[in-house]
Design a protein around this nucleic acid. Structure first.
Lengths: 247, 247
DNA sequence: GGGGGCCGTAACAGAACCGTAATGCCGGCG
DNA sequence: CGCCGGCATTACGGTTCTGTTACGGCCCCC
């Protein structure tokens, strides 16, 4: 994903001021006057973020699905901007899958801050019903878990627990927090309840050799494994997995 | 996470109109006039989302860290609202870890849409609280330490100790202070306990050649070395490498 | 009304971790 | 040059926490 931001708007003044603000913040900027043009431009620039004008509910929905379908923009964040008096409607874009919205005329600092925030966010939000981690694929809408394409049956509690962990991949949760977050609100459970359900989940995942994606963090709780990111070059580093080394 | 939204603002008119909009959308609403009051109210209502007023950079940063530290609000989403003319500054709250921001006076539909969007977003979207020192990167939320992108496993005590030192980078702490600051409050430990844990930490860091970032200050205690900033502008920081023996 | 799946609780065994004590090493000081 | 205070390092026993299994109750469906 190249770092460009694509501004789509028919008003030149808007584009110019946005371009200035973004350029000052170090972003590359591309422009287009309407959605069809934007799709062409996106083919060349592969923008990581797109500003889309509010054109009414129907057109925006179509524009969003077009952008989500096209390859160069599938993984782009999308911010919808709209005149101040239309911002109430434009906010609906958030329900339609946009990542943020912004009123015009905009404040330059706010615009840059929102762009930064959007890009910082994982883009998982665009497909809230499908959660994945490694070979796992959990479809919340269908209430179905598949591993390597093979379906695995989950009990309701197991499903809620796994879904919650998938939604917050990598974060550590205490047993209490898990009970609060992944259990029906009225229920009162305690003790080793979470442990047991974790155990049952791991048991289900074991045949697929991915029972270790649910990790225990001793004296704190549990978390879903997430591969270490930011593997910036470190060639000469020793292997730490087997620290049998002594001095 | 109980479904309440907590409105913090000193203007009653703002709170009333927001309450109406949210209530119409089916949310429970609680109110508070300032942050200290909010913390009390949050203890009872356990809000899933909090509206915080923009009070300047420093106060907001402190309010955020307070809310992230307190148990009932640790995993609440936070939206900062600010008068239109301050929205540019308020957007900075996004960098500080807020989930969204909103200009006043607000549009009711936009407010509700933003609340929905925030709550729809997984917690993971929140900015991780990362502490860094040189090649070290410690994420408290994920409970994970990576060095040069490699994950390193820490025991609970090691993690607490390292986190504490990272939070107070460069400061010297006596063993007593470390026990008080980085250990559970009820525990009673003394003697060479800290020494041993420092040793174990250094042992873990050694394969990465950064075991010397935990420095011994003879007859005082320990501290974390302030790493040399990358070439530019390290002017205001004292050089710690030289006077490692006494002060 | 019966049966099966699901869930929460209790109990036990094992592992991980922590604190303490003992010993060796180094630098400072008389 | 030798003593002494302070730190590093190692080893070890006790404690805490977790994994695992078994059991009984509940609810839903048949």
């Amino acid at each position: 994903m190249d770092g460009a931001v694509l501004l789509v708007h028919d008003g030149q003044a808007v584009r110019v001021s946005a371009r200035k603000a973004l350029a000052a913040a170090g972003y590359d900027v591309a422009e287009a006057v309407d959605v069809p043009t934007a799709l062409q431009v996106a083919g060349r620039t592969r923008p990581c973020l797109i500003f889309l004008p509010w054109l009414g509910r129907r057109p925006v929905r179509e524009a969003l699905s077009e952008l989500r379908a096209a390859d160069p923009t599938r993984r782009s964040r999308i911010i919808v901007w709209a005149e101040q008096n239309e911002i109430g409607d434009a906010a609906m874009a958030l329900e339609l899958g946009a990542d943020d919205c912004l009123a015009l005329p905009f404040d330059a600092a706010e615009l840059v801050a929102r762009v930064n925030a959007c890009l910082r966010r994982p883009l998982a939000a665009m497909r809230p019903d499908e959660l994945t981690a490694g070979p796992l694929l959990l479809d919340k809408a269908m209430h179905r878990l598949t591993i390597h394409g093979r379906e695995v049956a989950l009990s309701p509690a197991e499903f809620r627990l796994l879904a919650f962990l998938l939604e917050n991949q990598g974060r550590v949760f205490s047993r209490e927090e898990l009970l609060r977050g992944a259990w029906p609100k009225n229920i009162s459970a305690g003790g080793r309840t979470v442990d047991v359900h974790v155990r049952r989940l791991r048991q289900l995942l074991e045949p697929f050799h991915c029972d270790d994606i649910i990790q225990t963090v001793r004296s704190f709780g549990y978390r879903l494994a997430v591969p270490a990111r930011d593997a910036r070059g470190s060639a000469e580093l020793p292997d730490v997995s087997t620290h049998s080394t002594q001095l």
